[in-house]
């Protein structure tokens, strides 16, 4: 039998559209979610907006929540996916390395929010996504891309490894970027990504 915890009671109230319940849940989970997302995004404005967006979706979907575990895992996965989307774009725009997406205590958050799937770190997920993008590119191009974005090598180093001129490396990277953009980022979103230098 499912235990009637305090949170389950609050979730029942949320389902009925009671804003005090919504407020309680927001205030309860905000600090943890903020800390988690901020670790990856490293920007308070972006993090605040992201969590606000997630809670707006929670409100719009309030009729669907029936238990604590379902609620917390939804909440957490939403935050995580949104972080992942932002990071993916940042990597493609060369503003971020996928290996930077590291939080050694990440699994603690998964346990705390009741995520039951096998634990996969943000770093691993991000690398997978970027690798997927890269495999869609021509060979030489994907090699340059991998060295630059996954391994974080400098242009000069890449030119030595691939035994080509730095200008050629630039050309490969530019071409790869174009492919990635076409495939993964609608043009409007590009403006949003180019913010962090």
């Amino acid at each position: 039998m499912r235990k009637v915890t305090e949170i389950n009671k609050v979730i029942n109230e949320l389902r009925k559209g009671k804003t005090p319940a919504y407020e309680k849940l927001f205030k309860l989970y905000y600090p943890r979610l903020f800390k988690y997302a901020h670790h990856f995004l490293d920007d308070s404005f972006v993090t605040e907006d992201l969590i606000q967006e997630v809670f707006i979706e929670v409100w719009n979907k309030r009729k669907l929540f029936i238990s604590e575990k379902q609620f917390t895992s939804y909440l957490f996965k939403m935050v995580r996916n949104k972080c992942l989307n932002i990071l993916k774009r940042k990597v493609i725009e060369e503003k971020y390395l996928s290996s930077q997406a590291q939080l050694k205590s990440e699994e603690l958050y998964h346990i705390s929010f009741g995520i039951e799937d096998d634990f996969d770190s943000m770093e691993k997920n991000l690398s997978q996504i970027i690798e997927d993008v890269i495999t869609q590119m021509p060979d030489r191009c994907s090699e340059a891309f991998h060295l630059k974005w996954i391994e974080g090598k400098k242009i000069r180093e890449i030119s030595e490894i691939m035994n080509i001129s730095t200008t050629m490396v630039d050309k490969h990277l530019a071409k790869g970027l174009e492919i990635a953009r076409k495939k993964f980022i609608p043009p409007l979103l590009l403006l949003y990504i180019c913010t962090k230098r």
Binding site: P31, R32, F34, K104, S105, L108
Partner: peptide, 16 residues
């Protein structure tokens, strides 16, 4: 402290 988002990364690792 973890629930209030106040734990340092090191202490989070320790707790984990």
């Amino acid at each position: 402290n973890f629930l209030e988002g106040k734990l340092s990364e090191e202490k989070e690792e320790f707790l984990l």
